[in-house]
């Protein structure tokens, strides 16, 4: 049984077909790349999986159970974490607090215990902070040196890393990354590759939406190519990049047969 199974899913936005009849499987511990030109439906696919809006047709199964009709927070609790194409950090809050929000689901202190100020509230807060520091350590950064720094002050690449750390805090079985390398310098991208390989080795499956083909080539087991909301190719990156339809989607009809595609 695949970890995630998207079965002929469609999504229409008032007549515009953002996705039509797309199917894909993600096995446990796999990194699957999703590529395609702008507007091909990659982010829509992620939004359907995480329940931001319901599909117009089809089904999405996670560990055998359907995700249709479930709320975003329930899907997250089942073990699907995500980052966003437009960074969505809690800018007012510190690095550590951002991760603590991701972990909140695992904290057990109740509302009334907090109001009454029971002593175990403090103990659990301290424990939560330690756990959050461990999560921060899973992305290559210097977050652990300044966990109290405000998220708003972070450089761009660090914001992307912090988003990944926050998504890791929910202990996902499947991590959806929406263009994590956007705006990253070469060294930062190498760190990202190393991070992704490490968490994949720890058993986390990943769906990676990305435009930087070097990253796709470097970490994915398999890629899925979308164009105008349809799946046009699937397979290892090195095979897919020679596919005539993929080359056409990226470069236009005139380039078909020219050989090296999007690299």
């Amino acid at each position: 049984m695949p970890l995630l199974s998207v079965r002929s899913v469609s999504k229409n936005f008032t007549g515009v077909a953002a996705l039509s009849d797309v199917s894909l499987d993600v096995e446990e511990g796999e990194i699957v790349g999703v590529i395609g030109p702008n507007g091909s439906g990659k982010t829509t696919l992620l939004n359907l999986i995480t329940g931001i809006f319901p599909p117009s047709g089809g089904d999405i199964l996670f560990q055998g159970g359907s995700l249709i009709g479930r709320k975003p927070h329930e899907i997250a609790q089942l073990g699907i974490g995500r980052t966003f194409q437009q960074i969505r950090l809690f800018e007012d809050m510190s690095i550590l607090e951002n991760v603590l929000v991701g972990m909140d689901f695992y904290l057990s202190i109740g509302y009334s215990a907090t109001v009454l100020g029971l002593s175990r509230v403090r103990e659990e807060e301290a424990r939560g902070r330690n756990d959050a520091l461990v999560v921060l350590g899973r992305v290559r950064s210097r977050f652990n040196e300044t966990p109290g720094r405000a998220a708003a002050e972070l450089p761009y690449a660090d914001k992307r890393r912090l988003e990944i750390a926050r998504a890791l805090a929910i202990r996902p079985k499947l991590l959806l990354l929406d263009e994590p390398a956007a705006g990253m310098a070469p060294q930062e991208m190498r760190d990202l590759v190393a991070d992704l390989r490490q968490l994949n080795a720890d058993g986390t499956a990943v769906i990676l939406v990305e435009h930087k083909m070097r990253l796709i080539e470097g970490v994915t087991n398999r890629v899925i190519v979308l164009d105008y909301g349809q799946k046009i190719a699937e397979g290892p990156f090195n095979t897919v990049k020679k596919d005539a339809r993929v080359v056409e989607a990226y470069l236009g009809r005139g380039y078909v047969g020219a050989g090296a595609a999007a690299s």
């Binding site: 995480t50 931001i52 709320k71 975003p72 927070h73 997250a76 609790q77 974490g81 995500r82 966003f84 969505r88 950090l89 809690f90 800018e91 007012d92 809050m93 607090e97 603590l100 929000v101 991701g102 909140d104 689901f105 904290l107 202190i109 509302y111 907090t114 807060e125 939560g128 926050r166 998504a167 805090a169 929910i170």
Partner: peptide
């Protein structure tokens, strides 16, 4: 933690929900 997740919600509801809250 309640103040923290309230602040998160105030900052960004979509991201808070995606964090399982």
């Amino acid at each position: 933690r309640w103040g923290r997740v309230w602040a998160a919600m105030r900052n960004d509801e979509v991201a808070t929900e995606a964090a399982g809250i």
